[in-house]
Amino acid sequence: MTRYILLRVLLALSVALGATFLIFLVVFALPGDPIQALTGGQHVMSASVEAALRERYHLDDSLPLQYLKYMGGLLQGDLGEDFTGRPVSAIIAESWPTTAKLGLTAFALEIVVGIPLGLWAGLRKGRPVDYAVLGGTILAFAVPIFVIGYTAQILFGINLGWFPVAGTEEGWPTSYILPAVVLGILGLATTARLMRTSLVETLSADFIRTAIAKGMPRRRVIVNHAMRNSLIPVVTYLAIDLGGLLGGAVIIEGIFNIPGLGFQIFEGIKQQNGPVVVGISTLLVLIFLAANLVVDVIYGVLDPRIRYE
């Protein structure tokens, strides 16, 4: 098991290295000049100031050199600073709790609602409940996320007034429930579908027949034999999704005006603020990889067949 975890960590590290380089490459390739963008084209910057700035942000170095310098800083815990001189780490520290609260609330919804819904449908295969869950999930897949977002905002925020329309002034949970539902709805639908399919498949497995032949009560057959086996793909999906939830909320954070990481990335791209984009993206990659690592470990615990020998 130790060897298994070690292997997964090594694999995660190499992926992290590759992913950060790609992000760096993409930001580097963005059109426009960030130093020119600083003045907004309004003022003319003196040549010496401009040179000093270019020197400070290593903008005249080659791409590999810039990357090496950046990674060198990263290894010492230095994410650099943006072009206005604010440390990227400060920006992250400020917006990270907001994103985490939003993402974790959505994640909790996926688990607490998605899994039971899938189990319910799976145990009532071919009955009305099954079809209702199927229909609901198809709806969730079919409607674009921003449509759901704006609709929820208008319906529950403005018309019914149950939740705040936008912003985070009222704190957790009041301000977070609505955006979390919208953020989690896709994952919730996927979780329910996956759980349902996996349970139905497991219930027809030979070892379930064995458990029944052993005279095990139905409840035990389902809980002890079917559920653990059918959870394996669901847990995998959930953990990967958690990585996404903790970083990919750009649209939702935009709609509900939530100052989280997604919001900062969006602003960073608009303002050609390379260090912010690279810094936050790198962090998100690391979170995603950490989530995957956790899945791999859970996976190994759930399914003894995939522990590396």
Partner: peptide, 18 residues
């Protein structure tokens, strides 16, 4: 299980893998 029991053909799939 108590009065009658069954032995299956494919022991790998007949046992709970986890």
């Amino acid at each position: 299980g108590r009065d009658m029991a069954m032995v299956f053909q494919d022991s790998l799939s007949a046992l709970n893998p986890v």
